[in-house]
Design a protein around this nucleic acid. Structure first.
Length: 471
RNA sequence: GGCGGAGUCGCCAAGUGGUAAGGCAGGGCUCUGCAAAAGCCCCAUUCGUCGGUUCGAUUCCGACCUCCGCCUCCA
């Protein structure tokens, strides 16, 4: 079977065929963070999903060029820069660093390119110039430059590729009502926002006067610059489908005037949102988690990653602390099995055909059906444990199984548990307990075990002798 | 109101026109000085509700109920 992925453009699962005629290179863009605050666990679902997609494409032999933008100029950022009397760069670089640290805790592969919006102002201006030249963009009386959906459609382009919206019947909400901009039509959106006093030092010169880019244009400019005028995959959270991604298509296809049959992005993928304890995450409900909040509760990035990877990307995910505790238990079972294989395996084995890989690939080829993939993994765990207990696994077989797992884990990206150096004091207690056991002084050995437990260590007696594990 | 998604065990979650994967939690047994880990066994005659199509539906169709997302801040 070939890899199939859901495409928001066609609302169906399609075979994934890259634009590269050799079928090898894949350009992938994922809308990254707006660095105005700590990213929350919902944001990270999308980034872990993008990481999974990239890893699976790589597993499938594609050479992926992964681009994720950093939005470092935007209304909220400007507001905070003003409130804190700092500079744009100082403020955003702090949050960018924090974001990347979280990204690393979650064991996401670093995108190959992390472009910043503020470093692509010339590209943004050039794209807007193209739109103005084609008559699709106009400068309004307020000095800002807007994208005209009517003119765009007049060029034979289609607005509304990702969503089916009736613009005539579109609800005129409070936000639109209080919109002070001088747009020709309600649905038009800003490409270049004219400088206002509140922007402080945040502005750039442009053919339309000093100002700053609108929200959507940066992604068009940066993706085109780094991945070319047409590329394979564009990912993001479902809420970005409209208007952000629709507008990206409009700007790009409007500016570049593609020949028939060619388009900006071939394949759009959107991840569903997560709920926390069954509700939309909000600060007032107290169910708003950043990664740091979870790390502070003693969970690891690896455990959070596992939990985020436990459900299909297109299904709404209910994130709970109980779920996280369950993730820890599942992971421990997996680690235990892999650890035992590692002890038994002889020389490292090259990956080879293996039932686990076959079942895993079959599941993941079907639009990254990770739940089915986990089903395959845990069936393999049960079977492996059974063989290990029955002493039915030879060393080379263990090595082969381990190689297969390592290959699968290139996609899951879990790696091993953080191994911790066993303190000398703990080792000394383990020896004391072992001596007591050999003397059949079980009362004493149980006391020592309790002491170990108090220090955070569990001791297991195996045929090869005692083994300690961190609780 | 418009558009879209979803309701499967206590919790999380796959799946199929032919009679329900997997994980967590729970129960029993084996192993163990006792544990732990592991193994074995048990744990949804049932897939939101009601109709319809069918030899047969959880899976297809219709209606209804509930939840969620988007409708120009949003991952």
């Amino acid at each position: 079977m070939a890899l199939q992925l859901f495409n928001t453009l066609t609302r169906s699962v399609e075979r994934f065929v890259p634009l590269d005629s050799a079928g090898k290179r894949v350009g992938m863009y994922c809308c990254g963070p707006t660095v105005h605050d700590f990213a929350h666990i919902g944001n990270f679902r999308t980034f872990v999903f993008a990481d999974l997609t990239r890893r699976y494409l790589e597993f499938r032999g594609f050479a992926v060029l992964h681009v994720m933008n950093i939005t470092d100029v935007e209304d909220k950022i400007i507001k905070r820069v003003r409130e804190r009397q700092t500079t744009l760069r100082e403020f955003t670089s702090k949050h960018e660093t924090e974001f990347l640290a979280d990204f690393e805790s979650l064991q996401c592969r670093r995108p190959h390119i992390l472009p910043r919006a503020t470093e692509h102002i010339p590209e943004i201006i050039s794209l807007i110039e193209k739109l103005v030249a084609r008559g699709i963009a106009y400068q309004a009386a307020d000095g800002s430059v807007y994208f005209s959906i009517t003119k765009y459609r007049g060029c034979g382009c289609c607005y509304g590729q990702l969503v089916n919206l009736d613009f005539e019947a579109m609800r005129v909400g409070e936000r639109v009502a209080c919109d002070e901009y001088d747009k020709e039509a309600v649905a038009d959106f800003a490409l270049w926002k004219r400088r206002v006093p509140e922007d402080g030092a945040v502005f750039w010169p442009s053919p339309w006067g000093e100002g700053r880019p609108g929200w959507h244009i940066e992604c068009s400019a940066m993706s085109i610059k780094h991945l070319g005028e047409s590329f394979d995959l564009h990912l993001g959270g479902e809420d970005l489908t409209f208007p952000h991604h629709e507008d990206e298509i409009a700007q790009s296809e409007g500016a570049l005037n593609y020949p028939p049959g060619r388009r900006f992005v071939k394949h759009w993928m959107h991840s569903s949102h997560l709920l926390v304890e069954g509700k939309k995450m909000s600060k007032s409900l107290g169910n708003f988690f950043t990664l740091r909040d979870l790390l502070a509760k003693g969970f690891s990035g690896r455990e959070v990653r596992y939990l985020l990877l436990s459900a299909h990307y297109r299904s709404q995910f209910n994130f709970t602390l109980d779920g996280l505790a369950g993730a820890r238990a599942s992971l421990a079972r997996l680690d235990e099995c892999v650890g035992k294989l590692r002890e038994l395996a002889d020389a490292p084995s090259a990956p080879q055909e293996h039932d686990l890989l076959v079942a895993f690939t079959k599941a993941m080829d079907d639009d990254l059906n990770i739940s089915a993939a986990w089903g395959a993994v845990f069936e393999w765990v049960t079977e492996t444990n059974r063989k290990l207990a029955a002493n039915e696994l030879t060393r080379p077989q263990a090595a082969a199984a381990l190689a297969a797992w390592n290959r699968v884990d290139e996609v899951f990206g879990l790696g091993g548990p953080k191994s911790e150096e066993v303190p000398a004091a703990v080792l000394a207690l383990v020896e004391q307990r072992q001596a007591a056991r050999q003397a059949k002084d079980f009362k004493r050995s149980d006391v020592v075990r309790d002491q170990l437990k108090a220090l955070g260590w569990i001791v297991e007696d195996t045929p090869k002798g005692p083994r300690v594990k961190r609780i």
